[in-house]
Amino acid sequence: MAGAAGVGGVLWRSVGVFLGCVAACAGVVWLAVAGVVLGPFLLWPRTRAGARAALVAGARRIAGLERRRRTVFFRDRFPLHYVPQDMTVLRYVATRAYAGTVTAVTLALFGFGMVLAGVFTAALVRGRVGVGELLWQVLLGGALLFLGVQGLRSLYALDARLARDTFGPSERELLRQRIDELATSRAAVVHAVDTERRRIERDLHDGLQQRLVALAMLLGRARRPGRTAEQSAALLAQAHEEAQDVLTELREVAWRVYPSALDGPGLREALGGVAERSPVPLRLEYGLDRPLPRPVETAAYFVVSEAVTNAAKHAQATSVQVRLTMAAGVLTISVQDDGCGGADPHGTGLAGLRGRVEALDGRLRVDSPPAGPTTITAELPCA
């Protein structure tokens, strides 16, 4: 069954190649007739536009037949709404006219060679061919057969490449591009997660750990014998204040890892927490009227949080404006500050955000001229 299907596929594609030769001959005829009839009008400026339109119209009809041939006989799938430019269509028809004519000539030579092979075989059976002539004919025929097969393979590949370049990438090419994009985004996500983990480890080691050591030292000093009640009370007050600072910093680290508000009230509440903790005034415009998918909410939160942090730390901003809108199933996040600008789109922080956004098939754009302001725009599909 599989072998029969394979033979049937070869025959079906062979019909497609033959029809390609016919279409190429039609292209040759069209170019020749159009060159003779429309040539004078193409040279005259007043009639050039009309003659060019007629030439392109005929070329588009031939290209449409070629596209249908590639779809029916070779299973190519091209973008439905893609319309090639006029010069691209003319170049395709001219190239296909040449390549298809060469293919037709090569196939004709193959047919002629088969006839000669039949005549030679009949002469061999009748004993009219000697051994030397047999070896010479076999050697020559084998070389010509090899060159002909290689030529047909090259012309077959050229036909596919011309169609792909003219009518857009096929589904196989689109799938290959998609695989490459997913591999790139996966690597970016792994890098972003590793960077985030290192940052959390640094915050815990350099921040919380040092504060806990200081808290333990204060409590130890308060427990030493010989302390008066006033000294112990003062040390305990310092320890209590230090414990509150530790809780505050621990809460900040936890929010940077994952905001608990996303599990409850949602993204709007989580962004409200970002506004409360922001060291610069933040104005939030939340234009969403329905809940978002959880991965989109998480990515949106980190885009806003990281952009606001960068504006406060590096841009010397005095105000930040955050706007969230939804259109055609795409969430658009815009974070603009009035800082000094000059943000590096390939920096560590923005590269991590780009990895998060692209992992969801989104896009991140950074507009940061040297004099400011800086605008970070993220687009996240919610389908």
Rank of each mutant, 00 (worst) to 15 (best):
A261H: 05
T298D: 11
L324G: 04
E379S: 12
F110A: 15
V330G: 05
P281Q: 14
C382N: 08
A32E: 00
Y82W: 13
T298V: 15
R70V: 09
P79S: 01
L19Y: 08
V119E: 11
V72C: 05
L116C: 12
Y98M: 14
T103G: 02
F167N: 07
L19Q: 05
D344P: 08
Q85F: 03
E173H: 08
Q210K: 13
Q209K: 13
I333Y: 07
E173Q: 14
H314D: 02
V105P: 02
T121Y: 11
A311E: 02
R294M: 12
L90G: 00
A327K: 15
V17G: 05
R77I: 12
F167W: 09
I376Y: 01
L215C: 10
F110M: 14
T374G: 06
F78E: 10
S305K: 10
A299D: 01
P370K: 02
A315D: 14
W30A: 09
G352T: 06
D289V: 05
Q137C: 04
V56F: 07
D76R: 14
P373Q: 04
V10I: 13
L116E: 14
A143Y: 10
L262Q: 00
A24F: 04
N310A: 14
V308D: 06
P345R: 02
L107I: 11
T318H: 15
R354H: 12
L364H: 04
A317R: 01
G142L: 15
Y82V: 02
A123C: 09
S368C: 08
R91F: 08
L145E: 04
H81T: 13
L218Y: 02
A317I: 00
G39K: 01
A214Y: 06
A275C: 12
G339K: 03
R67K: 13
A351H: 11
V72P: 00
A312L: 06
R69G: 03
